[in-house]
Each structure stands twice: as structure tokens, then as C-alpha cells.
Computed example of a mutant assay.
Amino acid sequence: MKFKQVLLIFLFILSLGSIFYLYKDFLINILIAGLICIATFGIKQRLDYIFTSRFLNSILSVFILTLFFIVPLFFVVQQGVKFFSQFQVSQIMYYIDSSKEGLREFLATFPVVEKVFTNLTQDITSQNIANWGLKLSSHIGKESLSLVIDLGFIILFLFVFFYYGRSVYIYILKLSPLNVRESHHIFEEVVGVLKIVLFASIANVVLQGLFFGIFIYFFNFKYVLILGILYGIAALVPVVGGALVWIPLVGYELFLGNTWQAIGIAIYAIVFIGFVIDNLLKPLIIGFVNHRILSKPLNINEIIIFFAIFAGFSTFGFWGIIIGPAITAFFIAFVRLQRRLY
């Protein structure tokens, strides 16, 4: 290899490393925006048939996605702040102590269980919870600010990708060492998986929020709509999911002395929603989206996508539910390409 070629390769690697270092704080946001754009680019394509302005269509695409995903979240946050602002610290302390005492009295008929419960909750005092609450609120405030900033950059990058998406895609195809057909095949695999994740997540959110809202409606709760929406949004978080909603609700019922009502909500949330819908029905939803909704079904096992969501969440946090399946699809597409070529 000639000296000039070696120098060019070295300079290219150096410039590439410099670019990554320069934009390292925005790489995840750029990646998330790119993956969302890939999964929802059909919105932009449909708008292109209606309006001729590429700028307007890009703005409208971002607006539709923002309206669909962010507005329900801000609605819940606003109502939640309004709800909790009515409480005083003394009421919260009394609620915690009364809930513990009520549950202990209920378990008194089962001495062994009551003893275990007492040992597990001996450190759960109103003072300790107040201290935990202060630390948690500080952490939530910091994370919320970071999330808002990230969402702002994601929306900005999303507009850029919608506006220049087709040109960027063609340019990447030309840069790829593979031929256009092979590169397009890999891209289609990733797009298909992202669409499956998107549609399956929307269906999962709607089903869990709807069934939880219908169930608690019969208990005469005032905030059925808010709790249903909040439960649906919480369903996006793997592992924890709706527990972020039903556990405080069960505690509130115990505080009111409605022990059997609290047990009913817990059993319904754990067994029907948590197990049946989230673990049994979700892979079926993924399979339905793949074979019924996608124009070209993917030859990929639904369980792989299901576990890719969990793996992505454990590695990258919330946005990992998008990144995990994308990485998995990219790897599988390359394995299949290698098999076809060699």
C-alpha cells in the first residue's frame, strides 16, 4: 500500500473519531430520531401526495408524531401535578402509616405472613419515606429536565431527517461497499422490525390502558381517564410497566380501608394485564403486525423481537425499546447476507 493511501486512511479515521467526539452528547438523540424517522416515514410519503412543499410536509410529520406521543404524556403530568398539589405532607405520612397498619391487621390471621411482612416493612417509616421522597423527587426533576432537553433535540433532528431523509438514504447507499440491492434489503429488514415495534407498542399501550381503565371504572374512581392513560404510558417501560400505577393505587385503597378492593386491583393488574396481555398477548400482537399489517412480512421470530425490546431497555434505558430491536434486525440481516453470498 502506498504512503498516500495510508495517510488518507489515517486522516479519515482521525476525522471520523473527531466527529464522534464532537457530537458524542447528541449521538443517541440523532440515532433515536433516525430510527423514528425510518419507522414513520410513511406519514411523510402520504403527505407528499397531498402537499408539494417538502418543508411543510416535514413540519406536519413531526407535528403529528409530537401530538400523538408527547401530548398525552404532558396531559398526565399536568393532571398529576394538580392532583398531588392537593395533598399535604402530614396527610401523606398518615396515609403511609395507616396503609401499613391496615395491611398488618389484615394479615394478622396468617401469623407467618404477618411476621414476614413486619420484618420487611420495619424500615418503611414515614420519616424514611420522606427522606427517600426528597431524593427521588430531586432525581426525577433532574431526569425530567434531561428528558425534555433530549426530546427537544430529537424533534429537531427528526425534522432534519424527514426533510433530507430520501437524499441521505440515497447517499448512504452510494457509500456502502455493498451493491444497492443488498443494502436496500438490509434497510428493509431494519425498517420492518421498527414498524413492528412501533405498531405493537401502540397496540400494547391502548390495550393495557383501556382494560385497566374499564376495570377501575367499576370502583368509582374520579380519575379513570388519567389513570388509564398513565397505565398505558407506563406499559412502555419493560419489566416495571403498569406497576408504577397500580401499586400506589393499591396503597391508596388500603389507606381507605378497602382491603379486598386493593387485592382485586393487584390480582387483576398482575395476572390479567401483566401476564396475559404483556407476556402472552404481546408476542401474538407482534406476529399479527408482521404477517397482517406489513406489506412484506419479515422472516424473523416474534420472540426475538420481544426479547430485543427487553435487552435494549436494560442496556440503553427507555430509548432502548427502539435501539435494541434495530441492532438485532441489523445483525440478523447481515448474517443472512453473509449466508447468501458465501
Rank of each mutant, 00 (worst) to 15 (best):
S98H: 12
A243H: 13
V237D: 03
P111Q: 08
Y171D: 11
A234N: 03
G42Y: 04
S98P: 01
I155A: 03
V239E: 15
S53E: 06
G228E: 00
L337Q: 06
F159Y: 06
G141A: 00
F10M: 08
A39G: 07
L210Y: 07
N57A: 01
R104M: 15
F211I: 05
E253C: 15
F255V: 06
D25A: 12
V168S: 00
A200Q: 10
D25S: 05
I172R: 02
S90G: 02
I154Q: 05
R339S: 09
Y23T: 13
I214E: 12
A235T: 07
L249P: 11
L7V: 11
A39P: 00
A326T: 01
R340K: 11
P238V: 04
G165Q: 04
R104H: 10
V168L: 15
V148R: 09
L7P: 00
S98Q: 08
F331R: 15
G251N: 08
I186P: 08
I303W: 12
N279R: 14
G152Q: 09
L14P: 07
Y95D: 04
K282H: 15
F84R: 02
F87G: 01
I70E: 11
S53R: 01
T52W: 10
A130I: 10
P111A: 10
S144I: 07
D97H: 05
S98E: 09
A333M: 10
S98L: 09
I304C: 02
S183H: 04
Y217T: 15
V245C: 07
G228N: 06
L158V: 01
Y342A: 10
E188M: 13
T259Y: 15
F63A: 11
K100R: 08
F219M: 11
S201E: 06
F74E: 03
F75N: 02
I233K: 00
G42V: 09
A108Y: 13
F3L: 11
G102C: 10
I140G: 05
Y171R: 10
T40D: 09
V112H: 05
F10T: 14
M93D: 14
N119K: 14
I305T: 07
K142H: 01
T259N: 05
L120C: 10
Q86S: 08
L11S: 10
I64C: 04
F12E: 15
V239Q: 04
L60S: 02
S137L: 12
F117H: 03
F219G: 01
L147S: 08
I64W: 00
A329I: 05
E114N: 14
I92D: 07
I267C: 10
I270K: 11
I293T: 14
V237C: 11
E105G: 13
L341K: 11
A308W: 00
F215W: 02
S61D: 06
F307T: 15
F255L: 14
A269C: 02
G152E: 10
L136K: 12
V180L: 02
L7H: 02
I267N: 03
K282R: 13
I36R: 00
I170K: 06
M1E: 06
Q261R: 13
E302N: 03
S61H: 01
Y21N: 04
F26W: 03
I323Y: 11
V239N: 14
V89D: 09
I186Q: 01
S144F: 13
Y169M: 05
I64E: 09
Q261Y: 12
T66I: 14
S295C: 05
W132T: 05
K142P: 07
V113L: 10
V205I: 13
V197H: 07
L27S: 14
G312V: 01
Y95L: 13
R166N: 09
C37F: 12
